[in-house]
Design a protein around this nucleic acid. Sequence first.
DNA 1: GGTGAAATTTTTTGGGC
DNA 2: GCCCAAAAAATTTCACC
Lengths: 145, 145
Amino acid sequence: MDNLDYGIIDLLRQNARAGYGDIGASVGLSASAVKRRVDRLIADGVIKGFTVQVDPAVDGLGTEAYVELFCRGTVSPQELQRILSTVPEVVDAGTVTGSADAIVHMRSRDIPSLEEALERVRNAPNVDHTRSAIVLSKLISRQPA
Amino acid sequence: MDNLDYGIIDLLRQNARAGYGDIGASVGLSASAVKRRVDRLIADGVIKGFTVQVDPAVDGLGTEAYVELFCRGTVSPQELQRILSTVPEVVDAGTVTGSADAIVHMRSRDIPSLEEALERVRNAPNVDHTRSAIVLSKLISRQPA
DNA sequence: GGTGAAATTTTTTGGGC
DNA sequence: GCCCAAAAAATTTCACC
């Protein structure tokens, strides 16, 4: 992770579909060098994936919930990650201190699809139960740079 | 915005660098038809951008917490919003169903700065108490718009 | 680690339906 | 609006520094 890597990541954050050639022109590398670094960043887990930012109003992702996840016995973070990454409605999640094992932030089109997604989380092995708090009104939504 | 558009967006959400041909194979369209739809979705502002999901530990926002907010009496959402918007560490917040009045997602550099930010939230008028869950390991971070 | 060129694959354009 | 096919552009591979 040198300054070149940070530069590449910054450019990808602004536009994940930028061409390797364009990125290279900005940071001062050839397209093939950029590709090799990006491949390495993905392999090392620094870049976790490429995604698209959709207007929530148009897409109708107005329904949100914060869900506390309680597991049976011990479940590794890797296992939880594997389970949660298969549910697209999961926007954000982490293992936490306190009585719950993890907190999961979910976003969906409406209550039925939220419930359906929640079912998929609950049906995962070792998940004992969940406690949901449905968001009534959104107060803050800041986009991390 | 028909079902094909939703399908395309879902696939892009999972991998924003997927080829038009691959997307087309999944939804049943040719590459050029997919491209035209994606271009239209961008032009219409439905797709706001393409971004990359980076391991938060790398960009110096590794410390996170989910905080339940309990207020004295009734506090309007507008009042809560006014309070929370003064704390930059608040990434995301909403009033919720359940015993807590609101859930607040905070992101900070380290524990001391997180604690300091939490103090500012707690000291707001009508805030009775808070219950925090510090994030131990980040599982999912999809950074929605 | 990087470069540059060749091979490959994808994107993009345009005609026809 | 979509498909097919051709043209243009990008990605990806690879030998060489």
